[in-house]
Design a protein around this nucleic acid. Structure first.
Lengths: 363, 363
DNA sequence: GGCGCGCATGTCATCGGTGTCATGGCGTCT
DNA sequence: AGACGCCATGACACCGATGACATGCGCGCC
């Protein structure tokens, strides 16, 4: 914990000279340098990074706040942010917010008490109005989920379009009774996906049956129960759209007992190794994180920058096996459903959708 | 970007009074307070967190450096560290080091240039001697992998014991030719697991066949090739021990074409949903991270603390299906192997091994 | 009326490193 | 020889907030 001045005193020089030695300034006599170096070693001097940083006017630090850093989706988001940050010599402070709105606020505020230059946040709480105080001071970009009670830059996946595509895909396989299972209708992401699902049903002239929609935050939320309840409805579904990866992971074990076709929103490691391999709507979390971080960096560079933007990233349907359980296998259709699928080719262009942005929609 | 003095000038008071208002010091006349508050708002004053922190002598910040934050294993480690940190009002800076030794060093050094109070690191490079400079200044705890070229606190899983147990388990199922696949023999973790594997073979009086050991960092490392090469050996293996989760994930698709039994080192999400469900040696990454973070916090509290410790956490065998492919299914044994398995009950005590520590071994 | 106390506010120093400029010695060029 | 310039080094200010202590006013009490 020795300071530069202490070292200076010991070496019989001024603090400035010590500074020069520490920073390899060539304008120091070899003999002086030796003396200082020795004092440095004797006192085990290590420069105080904080003082340096402070003097330098602050180093860039990017905050990443996600519900759970151990969730593969958010881990990929965080990693992408980190990659961008590293390329700009910026460090990254992460904070797991959890899924409890009150904890979220507390965690965010203690994160924001630190010296941050920008923030990428994926909130779950119903209101982020309290962040207004900070959006003035630093770039705050919302990722995966839009802010509520606040205007801010946003990078999200195409929830509505993705769910619509997924459901249309199942309809293309002949399914007429398609369940929807998600975490909570409060989460805007889930709400959008449900809307997309319903839009696809409507476009196909199918009725949206409320009893085929289930949420894991409801009273009777054990995954097994949810599946049982869906199976008991009449007619029972022949397919299910799982609205997010956490839900999917909870659901997969229960689905083994059914012959339902499945499309899941959100890819995850090993989804292709399940039996059957899961057909998923992939959101490209890395692109989400990368764009969010780049947006922050951009705003850092151009202080009173441009208007706020909401970017929606295309999603892509990764067709594997789980959507193939044909509707007639459940005895409802005497024929194999024709392949009506226009959605895949429509939304997944050859170049790989993930690398392109949708045109921005300015607010 | 307004400073306190600017606000003070505007409000016609001293900076100190502004400070008092900002910090809710009661000794300020209501009228003054109002004037200051107004100036505060007009200038959009936000306290400079860095200056505050600096003046306060620094806030605790814990660094976490892992090869890849998006790897489920390290994500869990990081999350556990974060939880501990949050409980101590400490923020967490993460850095993904990558798997390239040179990049690792660069990333570590740029992480350490920041004001950190402690570090939890899982290195992959063959030498961390360059960290010696920092271990003097702050607690550095190695997690999952021990340091090389340096002495430091270490929290690791019981690699040797776990691999020995896994191989013994396979032997118990009647297997006599057991392959070992890992990332690289350079990684101490992998080396220890290979040693454990060999120890189990030796204990059972089996020969360790070098051609049944394969690494992904070798020349011909595509997982498909590795599996083919193993299958071509004679006699071919009837079981395989995968030495780490990344290897396992790469291997699983290739293993589908074989009837080999599998035990994998390292659990991961959905491992239980594969077909067959993977039998794994679970390392409890959360406990690893938690203990490492607690060790750092502890050392932070007791500056010139106790001797350096190496803690080895027990691992536990999670028996699922993939170890059940009996040896005779490959036509090598005319009888169903007797269940010799003592290893499971020996190493997985009722209370759950993960919650206990092995006695520390002082260095 | 004088003494003292409480309260609002200000001044100054400080955290630790570093940028800016000053100083003084010595070598060199004309 | 005088002027100039380079070099090693130092003194001092400063980044921005805040703790310690000082000042000065007003009020109450003996």
């Amino acid at each position: 914990m020795a300071t530069m001045r202490q070292v200076a005193a010991r070496a019989g020089v001024s603090a400035k000279t010590v500074s020069r030695v520490v920073n390899n300034d060539p304008h120091v006599l070899p003999e002086t340098r030796t003396r200082v170096t020795e004092a440095l070693r004797e006192l085990r001097y290590v420069p105080n990074a904080l003082a340096r940083t402070f003097r330098a006017g602050g180093a860039p630090v990017l905050g990443v706040a996600v519900p759970d850093i151990a969730d593969p989706f958010f881990a990929l988001v965080a990693k992408a942010v980190e990659d961008v940050a590293a390329a700009h010599d910026t460090s990254v402070v992460v904070s797991s917010l959890g899924y409890d709105p009150e904890r979220e606020r507390g965690a965010l505020e203690s994160l924001l008490r630190r010296p941050l230059s920008g923030l990428v946040v994926a909130p779950t709480s119903p209101d982020q109005g309290h962040l207004a105080r900070w959006t003035a001071r630093m770039p705050v970009v919302f990722v995966d989920r839009p802010p509520r009670g606040l205007e801010a830059d946003t990078i999200t996946g195409d929830d509505h379009g993705g769910a619509r595509m997924a459901t249309a895909h199942l309809i293309g396989h002949g399914h007429r009774h398609i369940a929807f299972v998600g975490d909570s209708p409060q989460v805007p992401t889930t709400a959008d996906r449900l809307a997309g699902h319903r839009a696809a049903l409507a476009e196909a002239g199918l009725v949206a049956r409320d009893e085929l929609v289930a949420f894991r935050d409801s009273d009777d939320a054990a995954p097994g129960r949810l599946v049982q309840r869906l199976a008991r409805s009449s007619p029972p579904p022949t397919a299910v759209l799982s609205a997010d990866a956490r839900t999917t992971m909870a659901l997969v074990p229960e689905l083994a007992g059914t012959s339902w076709a499945v499309v899941a929103f959100g890819d995850f490691p090993m989804a292709d190794m399940l039996s059957p391999a899961l057909t998923v709507v992939d959101q490209d979390p890395a692109a989400l994180g990368r764009l969010a971080a780049e947006r922050v960096v951009e705003r850092l560079g151009a202080p009173e920058g441009s208007a706020l933007r909401r970017t929606v990233l295309p999603v892509r349907l990764v067709e594997r096996q789980s959507c193939r359980a044909e509707a007639h296998a459940a005895g409802l259709f005497p024929f194999s459903a024709p392949e009506l699928d226009t959605s895949v080719s429509r939304v997944e262009p050859p170049g790989g959708a993930a690398s392109r942005r949708c045109p921005d929609a300015s607010a």
